[in-house]
Design a protein around this nucleic acid. Structure first.
Lengths: 359, 359
DNA sequence: TACTTCACTGCAAACCTTTGCAGCTCTCCG
DNA sequence: CGGAGAGCTGCAAAGGTTTGCAGTGAAGTA
């Protein structure tokens, strides 16, 4: 009487030793079958692979990480996953990483500096590198972190570190020029969160462009970069008497439009509004949002490539003379182009005396 | 002449051995200082902690994972990060996990079954458990996976496995009843993706509610669960002559409204539209969307709790008698309540002969 | 005083894999 | 026919941590 064994996956996973035993070779041969196939006899290789398949063997990544010093994981730290700006970037980064046999830890800091710092430390020991996306920490803190673990910074410029930036300055200039072209001369800038490089860039460029065009630019902020944050300043915008607003991002722009609507001001008839990011949502609101499109997916992919460009490098924590994390790493800084997408939330300046301005 | 040493982080990270040497104890005492503090003399403890702090020591998780068999990572597999339904869930899950000293791998399957299966296998060896969110694979595949790694299923019911569900059936019933109350008798259901449990639940409940109310329900689909998918069926909706639509999710509902608008049909005057999910976006579109609110954040937290409830369990892959992954794990199935949020996209049935229906 | 108990610490094996080195067998060339 | 070289495989150390067991000294008990 024969007993057929169930072909379930075994409860305790097969190790390299099991495979070696099953295929009659030494464990080192099994190891090489996976990590350096060209070093093992083709016949042996197929046999080993067959046994491995049979036993459902998968290399233990912890053990591998222990000896190689590389985890094949990368960390991605973002300010707020729920902000629709980030998911496309995350998605692109993750796809690119997977493509290179890496996994991605995503961590959310809730727009909090302290959480950001804590997270990056917690992650550092567990990943081969970290993508810092729209960091709110100080440059010096970022530099300190970069000595502990390889870092690529997204949406910020830090000297001596690899960075992927989007040229929001140029975008802001285009936006202001667009508004100037429509006749607007009193414009507000809705500032974003404190510590945001993007925020500074936008402001710098907007101020310059407004001045060049002979317009008056009022800066309102900093604000929380969400609909709520945008809605909260609606009244302030109304009282300021401006006819157009450039917001730090689309979410704030949309919130502002809502808020203005509640105050009886219509967009774009009474006030023109421009956002930044071109999130999917901005095509769906009414009016459709005029905005500065940023190439978020490309940024995610590029950042992963930059982080992993030295894939074959000596691992971190190699014995003997240790190379500091940033050594002989080309610290390229990439600036991606943005463009202005004109939709329905901007229009010609309203005739004077309509509201607010005249006492 | 004294030389002050730079207090930079060392390029090669401190190990438990360095801390032991610095504090004059054995490595096992250092280990216990972190993993079982009550076993070590308070004085020794503070000394060790001071040295560890000083050296910037952080335990190597790979080494720990190697011996304990627990990685302190969990995997979270979602259909599409860019779908705004998921980020709040991810965020909640991640926060809850971090709270218990776990990290989260987020993986995106692009709504693809094969990618889903591949991902869960790739992740299995690297995490202590997997959260399967809105899986598109078959139940039997899920069961097979669950033998390899502990699994909690979100948004789907699988017998014998811990599940966190949202009662979309009840939500759909409320939605249909709401439409019936407004006088609608010809209603369409916009189906979601094939393989979605949520989709089946909604359909089942909607069909039942419509029948009970003496209404005619047309099912359109399956469709891609995005704005595009919703917009694509606008013409079909118009031709069908229905006066109200229940969509699989908010994204499709919004896309449909756009599409109908392009065809000259206004919401809610000509057609009423109800979505499901209550994503942040649905409050921002015009008209504001009537929708079934699902407690996504709560689902994320609950799922993590269920996965980690046996945190002190014997690790997977313990030597000797191995317990199958699902052993003595209480396979609770949690059903979270949903509710109908009435906004501006639904209204009374239009007077007959307005459009489409009459010749 | 002698014995037990307790609190604490050290010892050493074990986790699974990678990799430099050495050894083996064959082939090829002189 | 001898030697060199190539191709393949085995050996064993190493990586950082956890943990059962044993050992130490001091305090408590009889």
């Amino acid at each position: 009487m024969t007993v057929t064994t169930l072909d379930e996956e075994p409860a305790v996973p097969a190790t390299i030793r099991d495979v070696a035993r099953a295929s009659g070779v030494h464990i080192s041969t099994v190891s090489r079958t996976f990590s350096a196939p060209h070093l093992v006899n083709p016949e042996t290789r197929v046999r080993v692979l067959a046994c491995a398949e049979d036993l459902g063997y998968r290399p233990n990544r912890a053990a591998r990480a222990l000896i190689t010093g590389r985890t094949h994981n990368i960390g991605l730290i973002v300010a707020d996953i729920a902000n629709p700006f980030f998911p496309p970037l995350i998605k692109a980064a993750e796809g690119q990483a997977r493509h290179r046999d890496y996994h991605v830890f995503v961590a959310d800091t809730n727009e909090d500096q302290a959480a950001e710092e804590e997270l990056v430390h917690a992650l550092a020991k567990q990943v081969d590198g970290v993508l810092l996306c729209s960091p709110r920490m100080s440059n010096s803190l970022i530099e300190q972190v970069s000595r502990e673990v390889p870092v690529v910074v997204i949406n910020r410029q830090v000297a001596g570190l690899p960075c992927v930036m989007m040229d929001v300055g140029q975008g802001a200039r285009l936006a202001i020029e667009h508004l100037l072209g429509l006749g607007h001369r009193r414009i507000a800038l809705l500032g974003g969160p404190r510590g945001s490089w993007t925020n500074r860039e936008i402001r710098r460029a907007a101020v310059a462009a407004a001045r060049a065009g002979g317009a008056e630019l009022t800066v309102l902020g900093p604000n929380h970069p969400t609909e709520t944050g945008g809605g909260a300043v609606a009244d302030q915008v109304r009282r300021s008497g401006v006819t157009a607003v450039l917001a730090y991002n689309d979410l704030m722009a949309i919130g502002l439009i809502e808020g203005l609507d509640a105050l009886g001001l219509r967009v774009p008839q009474d006030v023109s509004v421009v956002g930044v990011d071109d999130i999917a949502l901005s095509r769906l609101t009414r009016p459709k949002l005029t905005t500065v499109a940023t190439p978020t997916a490309a940024a995610g992919r590029t950042a992963v490539d930059m982080l992993l460009q030295h894939d074959s490098d000596a691992p971190r924590g190699a014995r003997g003379r240790g190379a500091s994390a940033g050594d002989h790493r080309t610290t390229a800084q990439v600036m991606l182009q943005t463009e202005l997408v004109v939709r329905d939330s901007t229009g010609p300046v309203p005739p004077p005396g309509r509201d607010g301005t005249g006492a």
